[in-house]
Amino acid sequence: MSISNVNSTVPSPDDQDLDWQAFRYISGEMSADELAAFERLLGVDQSAREAVARSVELLGQMSTVPGSTVETVRPNRHPKIFAAVMTVAALIVVCLSFATFREAPTDEPGRTLIALWSEPRDPDLLNDEPDDESDDELAAVDGADADGLTVPGWLVAALESSSDDTSEEE
């Protein structure tokens, strides 16, 4: 038995290494060479034998708990694939952002257009009040009467000249 086992319950690094080898031994995780070497060690080293016993005793304790009741949060089973997909998605987003940025107007005509569009509007143009003068002008052109419908003068003149032409022909 090693000194650490006699004087303390805290295993020394050597004991921890033996515990790990013992666990690999009983779980069948050793190569043929490792197995032969470890069984030779068991033949001469009492602390190695005790390490095997400790590993079995630990499994005895562990076997009191059904594995299905051990709570674990499993990560994505294919993190490399997940990382690759996320990288491609990020690249697509970056490319799209870059393309949109390049389409923004940077030339002089574009800037002029934006500046014009952004200028404050003429207050008169923005005025919602009806413009009496312009309405009068329209009425004069149309010969419209505010009180009702009347035949415009230009239409009368046109009709008169047309009737004159037809009478001369007759």
Partner: peptide, 21 residues
């Protein structure tokens, strides 16, 4: 490994109080 542990436990029944363990 669970079976291996259980083999040890079967023979030490009474020494290990299973629920507590």
């Amino acid at each position: 490994l669970v079976r291996l542990g259980a083999l040890f436990r079967e023979d030490t029944a009474g020494r290990l109080t299973e629920a507590e363990t």
